[in-house]
Amino acid sequence: MGASERYAQEENRGARAAGSNRTWVKIRQNYELYLFLLPAVAIYLVFKYYPMYGVQIAFKDFRASKGIWGSEWVGFEHFIRFFEAYNFWPIMENTILLSVYSLVFSFPIPIIVALMLNQMMAKRYKKFVQTVIYAPHFISTVVLVGMLGVFLSPNSGIVNHIITFFGGEPVLFMADEGWFRPLYILSGIWQETGFATIIYLAALAGVNPELHEAAVMDGASKWKRIRHVDIPGILPTIIILLVLAMGNVMSVGFEKAYLMQSDLNYAVSNIIPTYVYELGIQKAQYSFSAAIGLFNAVINVVLLVTVNKVAKKLTETSLW
């Protein structure tokens, strides 16, 4: 315990005895700290909390001329309209499938790659491999989707050149809705696998080397050491990240899906965030799209809270 903590505790005890006067003294002493907080607090009040007040338009018939407060209440009308819409289930399905498939396919790969990298004894080569595989993380989504476009182009793309070289027929990847999810997931794996290994490599570096030494003494092979030393060693990290990822299942990123979206794959690429954008920003149906957004936000909160409870039980560590 640091001196200041002891000091603070004593002060707390004192404060309780002397009423709240002491707290005021402390606040006055540290008034500058509150001024430091001011810009962030102001930004949050305006741009985070005020929109929470504004989200009531989901229950109203919002008219810009009447303002948020002056517009008429309509209750759950917009929500019901969305639930009963012909595209409600397709949108839900698209959102959940895209997210769940991404999770299932992308989650294990960085773990495997990290375990493999951890076994590399040639330090320089390992560093080189890491440098290369982290690189795609820094590419923008626009460039990534642009690369998909040029690589997968039916006439000039290199992928179709390879396919035809081996005697196949060119595939219209970007125009085929069946390819939307695989491309979304594969490009995600290409871009993020390397960077996602960092956190597992950090966890692996924390595995006690004596365990490895003891295992070698007992004649354990590298494979066995991975299974019985490394994997148990990073299991808590794996669980936390898995739980976190599960809590975020309903918050799929907007950017890539939107950029990959076209009339040809709309049936599978129309997910909640792109739909909210389309209705709200492009078609100015503010109340209806705010309702869809709010519906999504509520699911997110429920998921996160549930998942955090599970994490607490499993690992005794939680996010808060």
Partner: peptide, 13 residues
């Protein structure tokens, strides 16, 4: 981090 007004209210603001 857990709850936000969402895109539309922010945009209107």
């Amino acid at each position: 981090m857990f709850f936000s007004g969402g895109l539309i209210p922010t945009y209107l603001l």
